[in-house]
Simulated assay, not measured.
Amino acid sequence: MFDLFGFFNSKPSTKSIAKERLKLVLVHDRTNCSPELLELLKEDILNSISEHVDYDPQNMDIKITRTRDDESGKPVLVASIPIKNMKR
């Protein structure tokens, strides 16, 4: 069904947000990745890159999701970390 008014709305619907969150919970469950492990991974990644760049911690996103290229949906770690500037 086409939602004419939703077409111009740039915010995702609560339904799509909830669906995405559920997918992430399932992926985390299937990969045996606890929230604690994900936090450790984030810390390690940030410690590694902080030697070389200044980053924006407010707008970063690190998560485990699934590949879309095949039926198995292999787990992948996706990091979106805005870089403020490079260190020399």
Rank of each mutant, 00 (worst) to 15 (best):
M1F: 06
L4D: 05
G6R: 01
G6A: 10
F7V: 14
N9G: 11
K11C: 01
P12A: 03
P12R: 13
T14L: 08
T14Q: 15
S16K: 15
S16C: 00
A18V: 10
A18R: 11
A18S: 12
A18N: 11
R21C: 03
L22R: 07
L24F: 02
V27D: 05
V27L: 08
R30A: 01
T31D: 10
T31P: 04
P35Q: 04
E36F: 03
E39R: 06
L40V: 11
L41D: 04
K42Q: 06
E43R: 11
D44I: 04
D44Y: 08
I45S: 10
L46A: 08
N47L: 02
N47P: 03
N47Q: 06
S48K: 05
I49F: 04
S50L: 11
S50C: 09
E51C: 03
H52Y: 01
V53R: 02
D54M: 15
D56M: 15
P57I: 05
P57R: 08
K63L: 10
I64H: 03
T65S: 05
R66H: 02
T67F: 00
D70G: 02
P75Q: 07
V76E: 13
S80Q: 04
S80P: 14
I81Q: 00
I81C: 07
I81T: 07
K84P: 15
K84A: 12
M86K: 04
M86C: 01
K87T: 02
R88N: 11
